[in-house]
């Protein structure tokens, strides 16, 4: 009797095991076929062509070679001076680019801060403001910055303002989502206490939620500043001014050494900002937020 029951159990297990294996094999097969199809389609549509790449590699090397500055061992400083012959203009343009990133970051962070409480499911004062804030952030985040720049350059004319607005919008969307997620993890007990004390919605956000989330907000905000400066450096290509515009200009005029000079300038600037932000974040985290909120 027991043996028969045991056999049945084994049979059932075998049956289940086989079904599971079949399903897994099927999933793998479908996945492989889908991947192969996507690969083929992408290769055809993307005009993937090893021959062209092979033919292009010397071109690329030649291009890079041409951009390298001629720095001799005999008078290296003079040569570097020669390479960076327009350093004063470039530094000013780089400053514009950094400011574009900075103002865009601050404006975007401000908008994100203003509406992130509406976009948090546990805090939104009502359903429709939650929906509007969520969809608004999603829209702002999804449209690529460059699309916004193209539109704003058309409206406001070429210049850094178009870049600032584009960065601010995109950043507000990206940061707003992160902020809302932080808000959703906030401790509900102080919120309940303030509601019970008769505080209004905005006061509850200010005193029960903000002190909890502010350190995270600052950390996220600084994390993205470097990325925004990097983005600002290329927005000039489509007319947002700054160093990117100059870079595109020298590329199209084939002034090769200037290309490497400007690219290196961007790289160094972004790296410096990255390091500065990292230090600031650490000091903020160590100092604790008590000071920041009082």
């Amino acid at each position: 009797m027991a043996a028969i029951a045991g056999d049945a159990a084994v049979a059932r297990f075998e049956e289940r095991h086989r079904a599971l294996r079949r399903r897994k094999a099927l999933t793998t097969a479908i996945g492989t076929v889908l991947f192969a199809a996507a690969f083929l389609a992408s290769a055809i549509v993307g005009e993937l062509d090893p021959a062209r790449l092979a033919a292009g590699v010397p071109n690329i090397l030649d291009y890079v070679h041409r951009t390298l500055p001629a720095i001799s061992a005999r008078q290296p400083l003079t040569d570097i001076g020669e390479w960076y012959w327009a350093i004063d203009v470039w530094l000013l343009l780089m400053l514009d680019t950094v400011l574009m990133g900075l103002v865009g970051t601050l404006a975007g962070a401000g908008v994100a801060l203003l509406f992130c409480f509406h976009a948090a499911a546990n805090l939104a004062p009502n359903r429709w403001s939650f929906w509007v804030a969520r969809r608004g952030f999603e829209f702002a985040r999804t449209v690529p910055e460059l699309v916004f720049v193209l539109i704003f350059v058309f409206a406001f004319g070429p210049g850094p303002f178009a870049g600032v607005v584009a960065i601010a919008i995109h950043y507000a969307g990206a940061l707003g989502k992160l902020f809302a997620e932080v808000n959703e993890n906030a401790d509900p007990r102080p919120i309940e206490a303030l509601a019970a004390a008769g505080a209004g919605w905005s006061e509850t956000m200010r005193f029960a939620v903000l002190p909890q989330v502010l350190p995270n907000f600052l950390s996220y905000g600084l994390l993205r500043f470097e990325i925004n400066v990097r983005a600002a450096s290329v927005l000039g290509i489509v007319g947002a001014g700054g160093i990117g515009e100059e870079l595109y200009l020298v590329v199209r005029r084939f002034i090769y050494p200037d290309i490497s000079a400007i690219v290196l300038l961007i790289l160094v600037t972004v790296a410096l900002i990255d390091m500065g932000c990292e230090r600031l974040r650490h000091s903020l985290i160590e100092a604790g937020p008590a000071r920041a909120t009082r």
């Binding site: 549509v45 993307g46 005009e47 062509d49 062209r52 292009g56 071109n59 690329i60 291009y63």
Partner: peptide, 8 residues
């Protein structure tokens, strides 16, 4: 500049 215009 190196491989020409296009998706590649």
């Amino acid at each position: 500049a190196a491989v020409g215009m296009g998706p590649f």
